[in-house]
């Protein structure tokens, strides 16, 4: 029994890697993931990754921030302790605008970033699940699950054809960070 868990097609050029994805897809070989040192535009459509819903989350967080700020100001200035400040009205909405705005921004950015960290399991101290160390430097890596795609020789030749500089058959999924 072959002990290979993952096949990595390693490219030094993003366009060749894109060609590699096309080659594999043509033959119906599923791609586990792609790792790159920079964002590759247009790869989401190729791999069928759905559009991120983070902006929607940001909008909802922003609305929450605005509401929280308004309620806080209303409670403190109008409901709990209406102070007489130079005889001016207590419920002075224009004066509420700056803080409502600031909290809209604060909640939407923090909310979105923490949602992002949560969705991608990013947090300080997390063991990096890296398949190839150079994928954060200068290599573009296509990872293929070798257990579900059994035609290993075909995968190798498809990757080579697209211009892969190296092909790895790994027994371990991730590089050890111990």
């Amino acid at each position: 029994m072959d002990s290979t868990k993952y096949i990595l097609g390693i490219f030094d050029d993003p366009d060749e890697m894109m060609k590699g994805i096309d080659n594999l897809k043509e033959k119906g070989i599923s791609i586990y993931d792609v790792f790159s040192p920079m964002p590759i535009h247009g790869i989401e459509n190729k791999l069928g990754v759905k559009e991120s819903r983070l902006p929607i989350a940001a909008f909802i967080f922003g609305c929450t921030g605005c509401t929280v700020a308004f309620c806080m100001l209303y409670y403190m200035l109008v409901h709990d302790w209406p102070q007489n400040i130079g005889g001016k009205p207590h419920f002075a909405v224009p004066d509420f605008v700056p803080i409502c705005f600031e909290w809209t921004v604060l909640f939407s950015s923090f909310g979105m970033v923490f949602t992002y960290f949560y969705a991608n399991h990013l947090f300080p101290g997390r063991a990096p699940r890296v398949m190839d160390l150079r994928a954060t430097d200068d290599r573009f890596v296509i990872a293929i699950n070798a257990k579900t795609n059994t035609a290993h020789d075909q995968i190798d030749s498809l990757l080579k054809e697209a211009g892969a500089v190296e092909i790895k058959h790994n027994d371990r999924k991730y590089v050890s960070y111990e």
Partner: peptide
Amino acid sequence: VMSFGWNGSVKTWQRFEAVSLVLAGV
């Protein structure tokens, strides 16, 4: 520890770009 376990996968980058754009917008 400082890298939060970043690995540069497709989804990480895709969401990263969404985050950058919205953060720039706000």
